[in-house]
Amino acid sequence: MLLEQVEYVRPQSLDEALEILANDDGAAPLAGGQSLTNVLKNRVASVDVLVDISRLDDLAGIARTADGGLSIGACVTYDELDRSADVRQTHWLLGEVAAHIEDQQIRNKGTIGGNCCLSDPTNNLPPLLVALDAVMELRSRAGQRSVASADFFKGYFATALEPGELLVSVTVPPMPAGSGAGYTSLAVGADAKAMVRAAARVTLDGGTIADSRLVLARVAHVPVRDTDAEARLNGGDATEESVAAACAGVADGMQPIADVHGSSEYRRQMAKVMARRAVSQAVAAARGSRNGSKAGGN
């Protein structure tokens, strides 16, 4: 628990923070610190200066966007997502997934920005954000740009963030009319790290799936949209049989990383199960005209 020597600074404004991040390659933003602190304890990465962005107003708060979506500050905690009436009203599942991240202590500190920027393949939120077509708002001294969540996660601990750039907020578009979302994890223990996750969003047109998103996590280093399965789902019946058939080929040809919790083959099989369950949840949620199923959970 003994860190390497490091500098700490708490800028008073976002501009100040961006200034420091731009000028120092060894600067790292510190928000909730629920992952970064562990990295520092284990001395697996060297940081010159920790830039504490946790108190910056510009990165706080959840706002309703004009189109009915959500704009979530990068430093919004999991607990805030869980308790946000706005989130629960239109993106219930996002609050529910946040409510099942590890434990209360971590939820009180861990942030949506940190969860995304670390790009740890075990993290809970990235696959869901990709399934919900979320957009990552990035800012640097040079200005602001938006990156689709599907393009944000680049690899194991790697994102689209350029040096000196900070994730400032995540925009989640409104759920399309007639849509619902689902999310399932195969975790090693209750609310613990997952071996496989699947997140889905489906839009129904009567008894037919008009549109779908199916995102798998932990079968690769980054959340992966299974567009083949989406194509099989789209236009098909929103029945259990049809969903199961569409999900039977999920993850075929992928090589999930094996570890003590299971082989690559096991994870591939589990990806199919998780995918089917997530899509089924999404269908049920859409039918219940809920933006995320009560049965969702994690």
């Binding site: 700490y8 629920q34 602190t37 562990n38 504490d52 607990d79 434990d103 009180n108 500190k109």
Partner: peptide, 25 residues
């Protein structure tokens, strides 16, 4: 690794693990 909670304290009304926060924070 921030998993055991033996160091839990309440900071500004929020339950946190004190091994996951730097003192200057």
């Amino acid at each position: 690794t921030g998993n055991c909670g033996a160091c839990s304290v309440i900071v500004n009304g929020k339950l946190v693990k004190s091994c996951m926060i730097l003192a200057p924070q």
